[in-house]
Amino acid sequence: MPFRKHWLPILRDLSHAFQRSMIEHLPRQIVPKVHYCTEYDQVISDYGPAIKQWSMRYESYHFYFKKIALRTNNYKNLQKTLATRYRLKQAFSSFKMTQLNHNDQAIKIQKIKNNIFNNEMKCAIISHFGNIDMSKDLLQCHKFRYENIEYCRSSVYIISLMNLTETPKFVQVVNIIKLTHKWWLLVDMLATIGYDDKLCAWEIKSMDKYDLLDPCSMKYYYKGLDIYEIDNSTFVAFTARLTLH
Score class of each variant (00 low, 15 high):
F92N: 11
S93P: 07
S94A: 12
S94C: 09
F95S: 10
F95M: 10
T98I: 10
Q99L: 14
Q99C: 14
L100W: 11
N101K: 13
H102E: 14
D104H: 09
D104W: 06
D104A: 13
A106K: 06
I107G: 06
K108T: 13
Q110C: 04
Q110I: 11
K111S: 13
K111H: 14
K111V: 00
I112S: 05
I116T: 10
F117Y: 08
N118Y: 02
N119S: 14
N119P: 12
E120I: 08
E120Y: 07
M121I: 01
C123G: 09
I125N: 00
I125G: 01
H128I: 02
G130N: 04
N131S: 12
N131E: 11
D133M: 02
D133H: 07
S135T: 05
S135R: 00
C141S: 06
F144P: 04
F144R: 02
R145N: 09
R145P: 03
E147R: 13
I149P: 00
Y151D: 10
Y151N: 06
C152D: 10
R153K: 15
R153L: 05
R153A: 06
S155Y: 09
I159C: 01
L164S: 06
L164K: 11
E166I: 03
E166H: 07
E166M: 06
T167G: 01
P168M: 07
K169Q: 11
K169L: 10
F170C: 04
V171K: 01
V173A: 01
V174F: 09
N175G: 00
N175V: 00
I177L: 13
K178A: 01
K178E: 00
K178G: 02
T180I: 14
H181D: 15
K182N: 15
K182Y: 12
K182T: 10
W183D: 00
W183F: 04
W183A: 03
W183M: 03
W184I: 01
W184H: 13
L185H: 04
L185P: 03
L186P: 04
L186C: 01
V187E: 03
M189R: 12
M189V: 15
A191F: 04
A191E: 12
T192E: 09
I193K: 15
Y195T: 05
D196W: 08
D197R: 03
K198G: 11
K198Y: 14
L199D: 02
W202M: 00
I204P: 08
S206K: 11
M207S: 07
D208W: 04
D208I: 02
K209G: 05
Y210S: 12
Y210M: 12
Y210Q: 08
D211Q: 12
D211G: 00
D211V: 07
L212K: 05
L213F: 10
L213G: 01
P215V: 00
P215M: 06
C216A: 12
C216N: 07
C216T: 08
M218C: 10
K219V: 12
Y220N: 07
K223F: 09
K223R: 15
K223Q: 14
L225Q: 09
L225G: 03
D226H: 06
I227E: 08
Y228H: 12
Y228G: 08
Y228I: 02
E229F: 11
E229I: 13
E229T: 13
I230H: 09
I230G: 04
I230L: 07
D231C: 00
D231W: 00
N232F: 13
S233E: 08
T234N: 05
T234F: 06
T234A: 05
T234K: 05
V236E: 03
